[in-house]
């Protein structure tokens, strides 16, 4: 965990309300895919937690959906502006658990953390399948980026306007060794039911601090309470009380 200043080098829309921001700064504390950064935004008190999409040297990529005042303010930020970030927050996904043929399911703004995860798994020689779930064609982003990494990439849309009609779980392959997922809670619950192997879920929650101090995001698990920000955001399937 580290507090440091980053400079915005790109901030551009990917869809109507999803944007990609690239930042330059000290990324050395980001150690695992699935971790997040916590961003100080002028005029707002609480920092805003956003998952890490990619890290390349001193370059950090995040993708965020404009849902409230914090992300609306982020959308207006310009190249060259500086941001105060806490980096390296959260546990992240466990790469060693993947087996040979992991499947990754990302839904909406749950897609971004799957990118760095895919990159890392492929660099370890895994045969990676990625399912990107969206509501409709206009919301789709990063399909080509995942394909370029060499992942078997499937897109689902709820309304059938693109790719496979249905939910991300409808595209689950018959044969996989492990799963990783991130997305809205109804999707995570569907993944929990539909999957046959062990796997990992990344959770989103309103946070106070983002580094384990305030107990603002605690949830009950099989092994007692866990702070989503510090002991999560990634929990193993066996830990979850559903």
């Amino acid at each position: 965990m580290k507090a440091s200043i980053f400079e915005i080098i790109e901030n551009s829309p990917l869809t109507k309300d999803v944007c990609m921001m690239r930042l330059c700064g000290d990324t050395s504390n980001i150690t695992a895919p699935g971790q997040f950064v916590n961003i100080k935004i002028d005029g707002l008190y609480l920092r805003r937690p956003i998952s890490v999409c990619d890290v390349n040297g001193d370059e950090l990529t995040i993708i965020y959906k404009v849902v409230g005042s914090g992300t609306a303010a982020m959308k207006e930020m310009c190249t060259g502006c500086v941001l105060d970030l806490l980096t390296g927050l959260g546990n992240g996904y466990d790469l060693d658990a993947s087996g040979e043929k992991p499947v990754l399911l990302g839904g909406g703004v749950g897609v971004p953390p799957m990118y760095l995860l895919t990159k890392k798994l492929i660099s370890q020689g895994r045969d990676v399948s990625v399912i990107l779930g969206f509501n409709t064609k206009d919301e789709i982003f990063f399909e080509n980026e995942f394909k370029a990494l060499g992942a078997h990439t499937f897109v689902t849309t709820v309304d059938g306007s693109y790719g496979i009609k249905g939910f991300a779980t409808d595209a689950l392959p018959d044969d996989y060794t492990y799963f990783y997922t991130c997305g809205p809670e109804p999707m995570l619950k569907a993944v929990y039911k539909a999957t046959k192997t062990s796997g990992e879920f990344s959770f989103e929650q309103r946070m106070g601090c983002g580094f384990g101090a305030c107990m603002g995001c605690s949830c009950k698990t099989v092994t007692g309470y866990k702070r989503i920000c510090k002991d999560g955001p990634v929990l193993r399937k066996e830990e979850i009380l559903w």
């Binding site: 707002l44 929650q205 106070g208 603002g216 995001c217």
Partner: peptide
Amino acid sequence: PLPRIAEAPGGMLN
């Protein structure tokens, strides 16, 4: 139960 935290003008609620 969650949520336990909210933004507020000049601060936060817990």
